[in-house]
Nucleic acid binder design. Sequence first.
DNA 1: GGATCTCATGTTTTT
DNA 2: CATGAGATCC
Length: 774
Amino acid sequence: MDILERLNEQQKKAVTAAAGPVLVLAGPGSGKTGVLTRRIAYLVQEMRVPPWRILAVTFTNKAAKEMRHRVEALLDGQPRGLSMGTFHATCARILRREVENLTYYDRDFVIFDTADQKQVIKQALADLNLDDKKFQPSKLLHGISAAKNELITPDLYQATTYIAEINRRVYSRYQEVLQANNAMDFDDLLMNTVLLLDERADILQKYQEQYLHVLVDEFQDTNTTQYALLRRLAGGHGNIFVVGDSDQSIYRWRGADYRNIHRFRESYPGAETILLEQNYRSTQIILDAAKSVIQHNKDRVHKDLFTERLGGERITLRENYDGLEEADTIIASIQQLMLDGYSPGDCAVMYRTNAQSRSLEESFVRASMPYRLVGATQFYQRREVKDIIAYLRLVNNPADSVSFNRIINVPTRGVGKKTRDDLLDWAKRHGWQPAEALSKLVTDLDVQHPFRGRAFKSLSKFGEMLTAWISLREQVSVGEMMDLILEQIEFRSYLVDGTDEGQDRWDNVMELYNVAAASESMGLSEFLEQVALVSESDNLEEDSPATALMTLHAAKGLEFPVVFIVGLEDGILPHSRSLDDAESLAEERRLFYVGITRAKDRLYLSHVFRRTTYGETEVAAPSRFLNDLPSELVDSESSSKRRQQTKARASSWNQSSTDGWGLGGRSAATSSSGSRRRQPAASYQPPKANRVPTPKPLPKPRHYGGSSDPEPARPAAAEPQYRTGEKVRHAKFGEGTVIESKVTGNDEEVSVAFQGHGVKRLAASFAKLEKLAG
DNA sequence: GGATCTCATGTTTTT
DNA sequence: CATGAGATCC
């Protein structure tokens, strides 16, 4: 494929720019990913740069994955050795490779997520005899994260006030606790990499020489530490190509600083700056509205965005009575759009806070309209999943006391607070890690210990299992290890308690198992790292027939033919916590701008008269941002007006379809879906028009539809679906032969021998086995 | 030691 | 309203 095909002049200029610093300021919809990927292809193909000498960094796994695919398509095959990944994954890879040069860590260090961090901070506070009610863990963590994002170590932390001094001490202790656990938090991955490169000129030089070209996506979202990293890596040659848009900077609260764009120009005075101003996404009207909104922010780099999609539908602005009516109105609009040839999957509903998704979901369920929730509760944060990961982490890294504490009594095994404290105490006195102490208890029969009777029995039993797992660590695969653990702790019977929720939890564990089993070639550390650095929203299914529901933050980088932005009220968007700070307010405005610019054809904005938050209903004022929309671009409707027009049919505020679109079959929807790893998109339940419209009490939306589709309510204890000898196909493992299959609870456990992959035990509901004829 | 209740808490969350 | 952590009760 010709790399320069169908590029406009500016895009071409960026792709073919000479080596050296390049700054691409890319408006929304201006084809920045295309430019970035073509730049890489150009470097390889035209400038003859070996792929392994190129480093491309992104913020999300999804962006990295997409870039990789597109580069592959351009180059007609895999660019061997190309480094492409998120900042965190890139740093983790460097740290892992250089681990022997790290003072406090050994090779199996683990990555702590926010829940783990909270435990660490509590430990730090306890160690310092500070009250965690007086000093809020979340606040302290935020402060620590901010420091790390600014490359400030505890030693460099300037404390001139009492509270800052507390912060400094907690930060310092927090780092010690992490190190004692052989663990890093997300921010450490970045900071420790920079520190390492600063300490060791030889290592710095090695990476500078390897990465002859550095490319960065979403540059406006970099924080100080990330920018420091980039500057160091590109330090020798200065071949750094960054793409960003300060108008889309919406992660300031995470340390992102779009002023890095200005700094870039100062750091690299010779940098070539290229503006991508042509928008290929939106209609003129939508783009004009977006421009009018963002124009109110000060100190912007001026861009003159334009589109060839002149005209377009006007923006619809609606006032509804309350959130319920707002949701129902949106659904009615989607149904109307369907008559115009749009699919529900062409539509997205965006909101400021996750809490707003609930009422929307309920309305979608009630109307039997398909939807998918993007980036809600993350799979890897689910309790049962975290529990099992904690087991694996402990096996991988017995120093991990956070995981230890998490699972010492999960499933309940008779180790309560007292016994646990005694154990931790005893371990501490001897200078052992908790897991180490447990091993001692079973391996060293002469050891003096404070346990008797039941406590001793429980601890030894667990100690024996743990010791055995650790000794098997090098010999078995991750999947086998997990299988063994699940079996021995009888996790299934612990979870499956006859409720749907219990079954869901077990299903989640089986899904994790499938991920592990598919990661055959990975070592345990590697597996855990991968699991720590992926997130759910990386798996938004494209081309799903369901309307996407997401926060405005989650919407960045996406586009939809039809976009609804809800809750345009002062206090929601802009959010109440941002009202008293100009910089925060500017960021809220950017958030609105990001939302508007996601839309290709149609944009619907809505606010309500009465908003219910935290169970309290209050009158809400329309968002101040609405004043920034030129009235000639907007069609305003309010439900009271509409009601008068359609008086005959609509009679009350509470009626669900106020504008006369009472189409939505009111059959009780069965399954909604969160976006899940390796799950098919939410299955579309078409409105069953002829069903008796008896609105049942709302089923609580299931977290996903995996195990029940496509055959809901498989009779328990029925015949197995799979027979011995039957040939099946699995997405990962390919063809195989069924060895045995048995029905267990609501599911079926199938053992299949796969060519080249050995025998796998799979949960039928997850494995998605395809039966092969013959 | 384990279950149950109460009470505080609540923006966004690429990793 | 809905969730989670900690206290309290059995």
